[in-house]
Simulated assay, not measured.
Amino acid sequence: MHEIGVLIEVVKSVEKFAKINNVQKIETLVLQIGELSSMIPKYMKNLYPASIEGTILEGSELKIEILPANALCKECNKVFNIVSNKGICPNCKSEKCEILSGKEFYIKEIACY
């Protein structure tokens, strides 16, 4: 479960941001996680309280937005969701595709007060 290590690094980044911007408390942290990312949102949510204990984020809420795993079919040039279509273009049934999105992991928003 590498999610805890990633969360600890996210907390460090947010704390650095807070220090630079004289922020005293974080209310909400919004992460964007791609469908193909190695991060499992359920684990991130479950591990969040432990990773923020004793930090400026303690008591904050974690929100996660899932980014779709889109691919471009190399045969017909249509964009499709690779996860829901199991890697097969719904237009031409080709398996030849290029992944366009879905591997991302971003800190989207830090709500402060």
Results as ranks from 00 to 15, higher is better:
80 F>V: 07
60 S>Y: 06
62 L>C: 03
57 L>N: 07
107 I>E: 06
111 A>N: 14
48 Y>L: 04
71 A>T: 04
30 V>I: 13
106 Y>I: 06
56 I>N: 11
92 C>K: 09
4 I>Q: 03
22 N>W: 09
43 Y>E: 04
36 L>A: 12
60 S>Q: 06
46 N>Y: 09
7 L>N: 08
24 Q>P: 02
21 N>R: 06
21 N>I: 01
72 L>Q: 03
36 L>F: 12
36 L>M: 13
51 S>E: 07
56 I>E: 10
40 I>C: 00
86 K>I: 10
20 I>S: 09
79 V>D: 05
77 N>H: 14
59 G>H: 11
22 N>I: 00
101 S>C: 04
102 G>Q: 04
41 P>F: 03
10 V>K: 02
62 L>I: 04
89 C>W: 14
76 C>S: 08
48 Y>R: 12
20 I>W: 07
32 Q>S: 12
106 Y>P: 02
101 S>A: 03
6 V>Q: 01
34 G>W: 05
69 A>R: 08
75 E>N: 15
21 N>G: 01
104 E>V: 11
66 I>W: 05
24 Q>N: 15
61 E>L: 10
64 I>E: 00
52 I>D: 04
108 K>D: 05
71 A>F: 01
76 C>N: 10
11 V>F: 05
105 F>V: 02
71 A>S: 14
97 C>N: 13
91 N>M: 03
98 E>F: 12
93 K>H: 11
90 P>G: 02
57 L>A: 07
84 S>A: 00
37 S>Q: 11
28 T>S: 04
43 Y>M: 08
52 I>T: 15
109 E>R: 15
18 A>S: 15
106 Y>L: 12
61 E>A: 07
63 K>E: 12
113 Y>V: 14
94 S>F: 09
86 K>M: 07
76 C>R: 10
34 G>V: 07
82 I>R: 04
85 N>Y: 08
76 C>K: 09
77 N>V: 00
21 N>S: 03
90 P>H: 06
